[in-house]
């Protein structure tokens, strides 16, 4: 039983750490990339996976602490947040990209970067 608890703690820590890492790469990409569309590449992917991983870690933690019907409902709510972020984040990214395209932001190309 103790072994199981250690294992679950390990899983939670790994999930949280990976989530922080991917959030960090998304943020760094937002700061470093030269172009508006490249920045969107970073945020659209990194945020989705980071949020999913951290929320999964929270789900494991809640179920480990206290396994009852009330916590099961909370888990379902968190799973709904994961589902929603999984669908809403790419959609929002696409909406911003299309808005940028329509408002006349020209994407950088290979030749622009060489100059």
């Amino acid at each position: 039983m103790i072994l199981l608890e250690y294992f679950l703690n390990f899983v939670i820590i790994v999930l949280l750490f990976l989530g922080i890492f991917f959030f960090f790469t998304a943020t760094l990409g937002l700061l470093r990339f030269p172009d508006f569309y490249c920045k969107l590449q970073a945020t659209g992917k990194g945020d989705t996976l980071g949020a999913i991983l951290i929320l999964l870690g929270v789900v494991v933690y809640i179920l480990k602490e206290d396994f009852s019907f009330a916590t099961f409902l909370v888990t379902l709510k968190i799973l709904f947040i994961i589902f929603f972020i999984f669908h809403a984040n790419p959609t929002a990214t696409h909406a911003i990209t299309k808005a940028g395209l329509d408002s006349g932001i020209i994407p950088l190309t290979k030749e622009d970067l060489k100059k």
């Binding site: 943020t27 937002l30 508006f36 920045k39 945020t43 945020d47 408002s103």
Partner: peptide
């Protein structure tokens, strides 16, 4: 647009 992206993040 950069600002909108940052606020979303």
């Amino acid at each position: 647009m950069d600002r909108i992206v940052a606020v979303g993040v």
